[in-house]
Nucleic acid binder design. Structure first.
Lengths: 193, 193
DNA sequence: GCCACGCTGGACCAATTGGTCTACTCCTGT
DNA sequence: ACAGGAGTAGACCAATTGGTCCAGCGTGGC
């Protein structure tokens, strides 16, 4: 429910960014690693180096607004990753493999703990808005893959099936990689799509 | 950790159970649906109809002890589900399919929201103990499947690969089923193992 | 009978939670 | 020059958090 900061540097939230973006970035980072309820407003404020007044100015509904925005931001990042991976691919398998490799690398670099959406929205207050937003985001990812699959020559039913399958193994791979603290599972996912 | 209550009736926590078991059951149920930080001691106490004194008597380390016990209990339930499914199977695919179907049904009946382990341990305080316990439990599931796979005639490398794959799609299927609030994904998982 | 001990009951506590509110600063348009 | 709104700053608040503590309860052995 906010504009998307255009993929800024990285965690750490350099001061250059406008306050609102720093808040989103900090929230996305913290929610991703500790879950919605695991993060306090104080943590976010500290990480973003912003005062409380600013937060409630930009996000009148407070924590929940921020979570929605953070999830959207994380989703956009994922969509971009998918697009980039499939744009340079000459087969579905090729694209899927690139996605997995990129995710594995990201997992190592940032210490991505789980799917940011699951951590941010599923664990939050289980109102319809959160759940709906999560579902919407997930379908967005699947659709993005689906479109590329069709473009690469797959039949629609095939594309749908494979896109969904890719999503499922990525989500599962995230979990196992996290438990093992090892990106191998994520990286080798491509072999079973 | 603690002893395992022998798979009691169901959520709802009937008063028949001894206090300690009621606490574990309540904790397992609540953590599973709302995540570690999403549940307060007060919620657990209310659900288990137990006073605070009892909780800290049985679980001196409080919430974290309880979470570990709840995770163990949930894991045992899962192990039993795997065992039952594969015991009556005459091929790996058959057993895997049964596991998926049983999980789908469980998902509908209890409103299982995610993997109970992920909800309970990953979202908790990210100390080594929690993470280690989660990893241990997951490997236990995979090993259980692996053993059945070997018994059913698969080569060890094959068995290992397939067991891990089953785990991955189940975890991913849980996530997507939850987002869609629809058990279809979980149920049809078997087709892609 | 009665003691000891596992367990229950709940009052109590400091710390933290998410959120409100108001005073202020700074920039922009006129 | 100055009005006005966007954004910043942080004091403040009620409610909740996880946790402590101890007085009782009931039931087992002796």
């Amino acid at each position: 429910m906010t504009t998307t900061p255009s993929a800024p540097t990285a965690p750490g939230a350099a001061k250059a960014l406008p306050t609102k973006d720093r808040l989103i970035l900090a929230a996305a980072t913290l929610f991703r690693t500790r879950g919605y309820h695991g993060v306090g407003m104080a943590d976010i404020l500290a990480e973003a180096k912003a005062p409380k007044g600013s937060l409630y100015h930009h996000f009148p509904n407070g924590k929940s607004d921020l979570a929605l925005a953070a999830a959207t931001w994380a989703s956009d990042q994922m969509l971009r990753l998918i697009a980039v991976s499939f744009d340079g691919a000459d087969s579905f398998e090729d694209g899927a493999k690139t996605v997995c490799h990129k995710l594995a690398k990201l997992f190592e670099v940032t210490g991505w703990d789980t799917c940011p959406i699951a951590a941010t929205l599923f664990e939050g207050p289980d109102n319809t808005e959160f759940r709906g937003h999560a579902a919407h985001i997930y379908e967005g990812w699947i659709t993005e893959v689906f479109d590329h699959a069709v473009r690469l020559g797959l039949s629609e039913p095939d594309a749908r099936r494979k896109a969904e399958h890719l999503f499922v193994v990525i989500e599962g791979g995230w979990t196992l990689s996290r438990a093992r603290r090892n990106s191998d599972v994520l990286r080798n996912l491509s072999s079973l799509v």
